[in-house]
């Protein structure tokens, strides 16, 4: 049994080394604005096709509607998810997961750990899976999902996906009531920083921006641009005239789908999307994600014969 971690970053580091020790490639965050770790191509695209895969990474995630100017103890418009994806899902994935809780100082014989039904669905990714939210003493600490479909494609083999909401999990482990009060680095470090020292101001700035100042006409235009660009990229012939090789540009196209998705989230936060329009926008993003998935499965990484 390891001793208890003392800071937010220590929890992240322990998760990194735990999953590294279990054979995952420890990747870095994707360099785009996403709503959740699932959007990282290392999950969305790699869940497709027959190639085996094991990766773990931190993904900064943005949910503009959750902004609370840094005042709410638990809600943030920018937060971190820890994401693990293993394909095919190993038979002892639950045990591996429980091991990761031990690694960050949660002793399952002292706490009440439960797997509570929660079917995961991402309408914008055309993806769904079955699994649970994992509760620790009544608090949701992770999402545990067996991917069944992504971008409208059946997942074969099935990936097991774990998502940890890092701030919430860390607050619990560290016994902190307000996220901004959470030690970011070691509390005894010469320059000890709290989460609020790093993020309070940005939460305020982005909350104002997301809710009141983001230019909606521009966002709408960019949404349409991303949509058009995605289609254009995918419509290019597979054979690259410059190299003469077959190069299907699934990832660049998928970047545009990610962009469209984030722009939609921003528009949503600005309150300019009506309930009925909402469905239409989600459908448009899904169409992009699906087209990218269709393209990816024709590539080598997507399991197509090289």
């Amino acid at each position: 049994m390891t001793d208890a971690p003392r800071s937010f970053q220590e929890i992240i580091l322990r998760l990194q080394s735990y999953w590294a020790s279990k054979g995952c490639a420890v990747l870095q965050p994707y360099d785009m604005e996403v709503g959740a770790g699932t959007f990282h191509p290392a999950t969305t695209l790699r869940a497709l096709g027959s190639n085996h895969w094991a990766a773990a990474y931190v993904q900064p995630s943005r949910r503009p509607t959750d902004g609370r100017y840094g005042e709410n103890p638990n809600r943030l418009q920018h937060y971190y998810q820890y994401q693990v994806i293993i394909k095919p899902s190993p038979p002892d994935l639950q045990e591996l997961y429980l091991g990761s809780l031990r690694a960050i100082g949660i002793d399952p014989t002292l706490h009440d750990i439960r797997f509570v039904e929660d079917d995961w669905e991402s309408p914008t990714l055309g993806a769904w899976g079955l699994g649970w939210e994992v509760w620790c003493d009544g608090m949701e600490v992770s999402q545990f999902t067996y991917f069944q479909q992504v971008g409208g494609h059946d997942c074969r083999p099935v990936s097991g996906e774990l998502t940890y909401g890092l701030e919430r999990l860390a607050m619990y482990v560290l016994g902190v009531d307000h996220v901004m009060e959470m030690p970011f680095n070691d509390p005894d470090a010469p320059i000890a920083l709290k989460y609020g020292d790093v993020f309070r101001q940005t939460e305020e700035e982005y909350s104002r921006h997301n809710f009141d100042t983001a230019t909606t006409e521009m966002l709408l235009r960019h949404f349409e641009d991303a949509e058009a660009e995605c289609a254009k990229i995918l419509s290019a012939p597979a054979e690259d005239p410059r190299t003469g090789k077959r190069i299907v540009m699934a990832h660049p196209a998928y970047d545009q789908a990610i962009k469209a998705s984030h722009l939609f989230n921003l528009l949503d936060a600005r309150g300019v999307i009506s309930v009925t329009e909402r469905q239409a926008y989600i459908g448009r993003v899904r169409a992009l994600a699906k087209a990218c998935a269709d393209a990816f499965v024709t590539t080598e990484a997507g399991g197509a014969a090289a």
């Binding site: 002292l110 706490h111 009440d112 003493d137």
Partner: peptide
């Protein structure tokens, strides 16, 4: 009243405290 799925060496004190905290939030 919360129903846990485990008996613990601290007789549920940690579990109850955790649940109470989540509830308070």
């Amino acid at each position: 009243v919360t129903v846990a799925n485990i008996e613990t060496r601290d007789h549920g004190a940690t579990i109850l405290a955790g649940n109470g905290k989540v509830l308070s939030a």
